[in-house]
């Protein structure tokens, strides 16, 4: 939460993580801390395992080696009830929103509420409507089916569902991929606004340099199966060829040129 600034214990603590498929190692003993209340961006080229990192933290992939602690619990060890308890404290937005296609948007948002709380239907309807307003969707979206929504709206609805249980930690998997620049900008604004209002800790996988500039506090770059972590300013001084290319390429320069002093302060 935003109020507990004194607390510096990391929310996610990764030590010596190894991920891979068969003989193909993707992450080679990486360490990472995500601090309470920060927005951490994870970038890397295609196939460097950004989504794999996210999936191994939320327990969808079993790592080959190393430990992952979320809220002080080792995700590899906890099962059943304890894992449910952990899962209630985080929300995940998958790339395409991953809305349940057979249910309306309101029903999608109410799935975790119905599963984990004893709320009345009236209150669940109010909460669903509130979450929709929160993510900037019109009220009539509630009764629509996911197939009736555009890509950007699906992501917003997915975000509303991820926020249904008021999690402390939010995982976003390429939230702006496939959106036009204007929608992407609006989505960045939304993430920033919600992060402030709800005091969220955000783990953000992206390759959108505008998103990185707009919302992240620190950035973790996946290069050569390792993580390089720092602020944008620090990473720009890094010598690694991929990082150099990424931040000093045409797109990178254009995005960073628009960095104003106000957002530099945040970095």
């Amino acid at each position: 939460m935003a109020d507990s600034t004194g607390e510096k214990q990391p929310i996610i603590r990764i030590r010596g993580l190894v991920n891979g498929f068969g003989s193909n190692i993707i992450h080679d003993h990486i360490d990472l801390d995500v601090r309470r209340g920060e927005v951490l961006g994870v970038v890397g080229g295609s196939g460097t395992g950004k989504s794999v990192l996210l999936r191994s933290i939320i327990g969808l992939i079993q790592p080959l080696d190393g430990t992952i602690e979320v809220f002080g619990n080792r995700t590899g060890d906890v099962e059943g009830r304890a894992m449910r308890k952990l899962e209630m404290r985080w929300g995940v937005l998958f790339q395409e929103g991953a809305l349940f296609s057979a249910q309306t948007v309101a029903e999608n948002i109410q799935v975790p509420l119905r599963e984990y709380t004893s709320m009345s239907q009236a209150l669940m309807n109010e909460i669903a409507a509130m979450k929709l307003t929160m993510v900037g969707l019109p009220a009539d979206t509630a009764n629509k089916f996911p197939s009736e929504l555009s890509g950007g709206m699906k992501k917003r609805a997915g975000l509303a569902r991820a926020l249904a249980l008021d999690p402390e930690l939010l995982f976003l998997d390429e939230p702006t991929a496939g959106l036009d620049p204007i929608s992407a900008n609006q989505f960045d604004e939304l993430i920033k606004r919600l992060q402030k209002a709800l005091g969220l800790t955000v783990f953000l996988v992206t390759h959108d340099i505008d998103t990185l500039r707009a919302v992240t506090d620190r950035i973790a770059v996946l290069v050569n199966k390792k993580l390089v972590i720092g602020t944008i300013a620090e990473l720009r001084k890094n010598d690694d060829p991929w990082i150099k290319d990424y931040f000093s390429g045409v797109r990178g320069r254009a995005a960073l040129a628009s960095m104003d002093p106000a957002s530099m302060d945040k970095v």
């Binding site: 309807n125 409507a129 009220a139």
Partner: peptide, 20 residues
């Protein structure tokens, strides 16, 4: 004070359309 932004954010005009 720390919950001011949260309330501000939620306190927008919204019509909680009943689920029908």
């Amino acid at each position: 004070a720390q919950y001011g932004p949260l309330l501000e954010n939620l306190d927008q005009e919204q019509k909680a359309e009943p689920h029908r």
